[in-house]
Simulated assay, not measured.
Amino acid sequence: MTGAPSHAALLDAMSDGMYVVEPSRLITYWNRAAEAISGFSADDMVGRWCGDGRLNHVNERGVELCGASCPLVATMRDGRPRSVRVFLHHRDGHVRPVHVTAVALRSEDGTISGAVETFRDDSDRRELEQDLREAERLSLVDPLTGVGNRRSLDGCLSRRIADWERHGTRFAALVLDVDRFKQTNDTLGHEAGDAVLMVLARSLAHAVRATDHVVRTGGDEFAVITGPITDDELRSLTARLQVVAAQGRYEDLSPMRITVSIGAATVAVGDDAAALMRRADHQLLRAKRAGRKRDADDATTAP
């Protein structure tokens, strides 16, 4: 067969960057894809020590890999291939994500005579992962208020119930309803109503503890699924939510005031998510019947 491409031509045709090092880590070969990905030419790199700081791979925690954590060094030490995802420093100064694979080279007698590293641009994978994370985040967020939605409520309740059943971690569910919200909408219009919900949601999110989860369940209704909580902490949280709702600055509502009614239920033996939320809803009805701007919980009152 005539006209067969040389090994160098084949390696230069690869879409992955590739370079070869001796046991001393001097670079002996640098292909065209390596030039394209890194910005460094073969003239820049061949004959240089690979750990001189030009590429300076770092992981996602910012740890430099050209020292004790270098995959090439480890592969030349034990002969095992390694694959890692790192950030490579481009000649222009920016960093770019690459997927690196290191493989040992062996002489005829089987001794390790160097190593080859291939690397490919990993931006598409990272962008895809970011897109997937963002899509997942958006699927759990209420688009109007920015707090959780019903799907996030279901997931949070499932986790809390599981912790309760396994470890006895006591938590509570609170349901909140804006008093006379229909009157606000009918008097001032839906834009004003939406503005109320956005302000209220932010106030609630800032008032709860780090372990608590705020969601909008629909319309003017919200829920809070708490983390581990005592009866005193529950009463304190409920009172705080009442305060922040009433103290929010709601434009165009003067002289009207925004208040909320709250029902709370603490998890009990035999509860599933639906049973717990039914008891919280029952307490909300009790609060509404008592005159609005009220709260009721089952810590002291049977459902």
Rank of each mutant, 00 (worst) to 15 (best):
M1W: 06
T2F: 12
P5Y: 10
S6N: 02
A8S: 12
D12A: 09
S15E: 07
S15F: 04
D16V: 04
M18I: 05
M18C: 13
P23H: 01
P23Q: 03
L26G: 00
L26Q: 15
I27N: 03
Y29V: 00
N31Q: 03
A34M: 07
S38W: 01
G39E: 08
S41W: 08
A42F: 00
A42P: 13
D44Q: 13
V46C: 14
W49D: 13
D52I: 03
G53A: 09
R54G: 01
L55A: 13
H57G: 07
H57L: 15
V58H: 10
E60S: 08
E60H: 02
V63Q: 11
E64W: 03
G67R: 00
C70F: 09
C70N: 13
P71I: 08
V73T: 12
A74D: 07
R77N: 09
G79A: 04
R80Q: 15
R85C: 01
R85F: 03
F87Q: 12
F87V: 06
H90E: 10
H90R: 15
R91P: 04
R91T: 04
D92K: 09
V95T: 14
V95P: 04
R96E: 14
V98A: 08
V98D: 05
V100P: 03
T101R: 10
S107Y: 00
S107I: 02
E108N: 10
D109Q: 10
S113E: 14
G114F: 00
E117H: 02
T118Q: 11
F119N: 07
F119Y: 11
D131M: 14
R133A: 15
A135P: 13
E136F: 03
S139H: 04
D142Q: 10
G146P: 06
G146Q: 11
V147F: 02
N149R: 09
R151H: 13
L153R: 12
C156K: 04
R159L: 12
R159S: 13
R160S: 15
I161D: 02
D163V: 04
E165C: 08
R166G: 09
R166E: 07
H167F: 15
G168W: 03
T169V: 14
F171G: 08
A172C: 13
L174A: 05
V175Q: 11
D177S: 12
R180D: 15
K182T: 12
N185I: 11
T187N: 03
A195G: 12
L197M: 13
T211V: 05
T211D: 13
V215E: 03
R216T: 04
T217V: 15
G227E: 06
P228G: 09
L237P: 11
T238V: 15
A239T: 08
L241D: 09
Q247H: 06
R249I: 13
R249F: 10
Y250W: 05
E251Y: 00
D252W: 06
S254Y: 03
P255H: 12
M256W: 07
T259N: 09
V260F: 01
S261R: 11
I262A: 10
A264L: 05
T266F: 01
G270L: 09
D271F: 06
A273Y: 03
L276K: 04
R278W: 02
A280C: 08
A280T: 11
A280P: 03
D281H: 10
L284G: 01
A290I: 00
A290H: 10
K293A: 14
A296V: 01
D298I: 14
A299R: 14
